[in-house]
Design a protein around this nucleic acid. Sequence first.
DNA 1: TCTGGGGTCCTAGGACCC
DNA 2: TCTGGGGTCCTAGGACCC
Length: 395
Amino acid sequence: MDRKILHIDVNNAFLSWLAVYKLKNGETVDIRTIPAIIGGDEEARKGIVLAKSMKAKEFGIVTGEPIYQAKRKCPQIQVFKGNFEIYREYSNKLYKLLLEYTDKIERFSIDECFLDMTEYLMKDTLENKAKEIKRRVKEELGFTVNIGLSSNKLLAKMASDFEKPDKIHTLYPNEIQNKMWNLKVSELFMLGRKTVPTLYNMGIKTIGDLAKADRNLIIKKFGKHGNLMWEYANGIDNSEVNYKYEKPKGVGNSITLPMDVCNIEKLEEILLELTEQVTYRLRKYELIANSVNVQLRTKEFKDFSHQGKLDVATSSTKQIYAKAKKLLEEMYKEGTFIRLVGVRVDNLEEKERRQLSLFEDNEKKKLDKIDKVMDSLKDKYGYDSIIYAGRLKKK
DNA sequence: TCTGGGGTCCTAGGACCC
DNA sequence: TCTGGGGTCCTAGGACCC
């Protein structure tokens, strides 16, 4: 059956949302109208561009590049810090507004949604609904969106990426040739920087080239991913709008250190802090983990990781930290300079909600209790109010 | 003052079993 | 006495996304 899909993409989300927030709180300058970027802390070595205004874009500034590079391109650029609380708030406002149009909304990321409007159009057209949504978001929420219209998610997403900002585009199957096949192959969703050079060497430069290439040859070269990208190039995508809330399949935190570290005690301290964050989040989801993964990045930017199974699924900070510490010790080579440390837990499952019986492990009950107390203190007095003793040791 | 942090999915290769 | 082949599970690493 022919489906009616919308893809909604907030224009320069992080920057727009901060602009709206600032205006609402008395700021007179709309940072969307000046050369401005959202960026991380340069001194802490997190100085990359996370979002840019249209004016900044005119200077050739791109998302992901170092801030110092952006400053070179545009010395008068204004740099602002990001704020995820604000982003979440505006993302939720958008979602709430969209719910007035359909229940079938997939929150693809903090600033992107897919809407399945197939059963929600009544007598109206998809175009009219899109116009109304775009207008209402601008008037009621204060920021602009691009909307892509089509009969599947891939095409709707490609459409919303056409000319920006504040625009509606269609990309129906009969428009693929004219609107999509002339684009560079790197513009195709799921086609990243590693794949492009290989395709170029094969003489495939546009999405049209890929669409017309021999499917089996592409599969032979790129495996499953090859099949996907060939189908995408031809506008084929049968995936559903996944509107049901799903718990995460893994939870992780990582941090780029302000300076490289080559001392395992220091790394263990950081690992503990990260593990606390990860397990705190894990418990909020009411999930327990079966495996732990520790990631390191050297100062040369080489990544490596070790993972291992837990004997029993758990969300206990102490148990997960014990495993993480073991993994760190087995993988860390003394003297290596480390730039980034990360912990994640995987193979998650629902925590059993029943009370532990008298006969169950006393130790387990004790650990649960400690975590519970710590979590409620964090909830009540702020995350940093409570920390493990291990973190105080070396201060 | 080079290169964030949160995810998901896939693949190659080794261990182990029958 | 010189070497099978299917299957599963696990890990390390890497691709991609926003």
